[in-house]
Design a protein around this nucleic acid. Structure first.
Lengths: 126, 126
DNA sequence: AAATAAGTTAGCTATATGGCTAAGTATCTT
DNA sequence: AAGATACTTAGCCATATAGCTAACTTATTT
């Protein structure tokens, strides 16, 4: 049995990415893995199907899947000789909300700065 | 002069993250670098100031800044002996929109996922 | 029962990444 | 002019990452 690709009993869904933006971003930093995610948003797929479009050896590809699964982005279960992989939406949402927060803060600062700029401009006029 | 930390004449700005989600996610996968970003959203800062809270050697820290700058997330300019670093918002927005797109595609359940993202954001605040 | 399909495990290689120290350069400050 | 500041460069080390081949284990098919 796949030592890594077995997600029963692990990660209660959210525990993973609340703190682990590390593993999330790490997982997403590889083009192959991002492609897998892009494929999986449109539905679950077997390992071999996911592998097909990528010109790398199967074991290499499997390791990418491991990374995705360990980061909580994906889950899989095996039935017969076929392992089916599906996406886990929560981490995507979590990362998005982190980015949103940062952007909001940045924009908030801009607003304050533009107000400051305005008041300075007025003061200079007067 | 800093061979890498010199962003005059470079600024990929937009060209960078349209294709290069790679470098973006790679840059964000390190906790030190994410901390720098979190610090920078509230305004520009000198290298030494950014370095202070991190318990790593300055040269090591500088390399993190390089990575951030090469990924387009950050820019810097030197005046006298002080190098000031500021955030570049576009890449954050680009990554966010990529995530949004994936999320939206995921089984087309945009509304449910937005709610999820919100609840995660709230949980993180609390 | 034999062959094929779909993973899985083991083990090797090369490059990237993150951390360090030591020493150098270019500004201020005194 | 001397010393302190604020990086910058160079170079070394350990671990992680991404890729490969070869061989193995279960299912399914034939």
């Amino acid at each position: 049995m796949a030592k890594y690709l077995d997600s029963r009993r692990r990660h209660p869904l959210l525990s993973h990415m609340t703190n682990n933006l590390d593993t999330f971003f790490g997982a997403m930093s590889d083009p192959t893995r991002r492609a897998v995610i892009e494929r999986l948003v449109s539905g679950p797929a077997a390992v071999s199907e996911l592998h097909a479009p990528h010109d790398i050896a199967l074991p290499t590809f499997m390791r990418h899947l491991m990374v995705l699964e360990e980061s909580g982005l994906v889950r899989s279960e095996k039935k017969g000789r076929v392992r089916t992989v599906h996406i886990e939406a929560a981490p995507l949402a979590a990362a998005e909300s982190w980015l949103q927060k940062q952007r909001a803060m940045w924009e908030g600062r801009l607003d304050r700065l533009s107000l400051l700029a305005e008041s300075i401009a007025k003061a200079e006029k007067g």
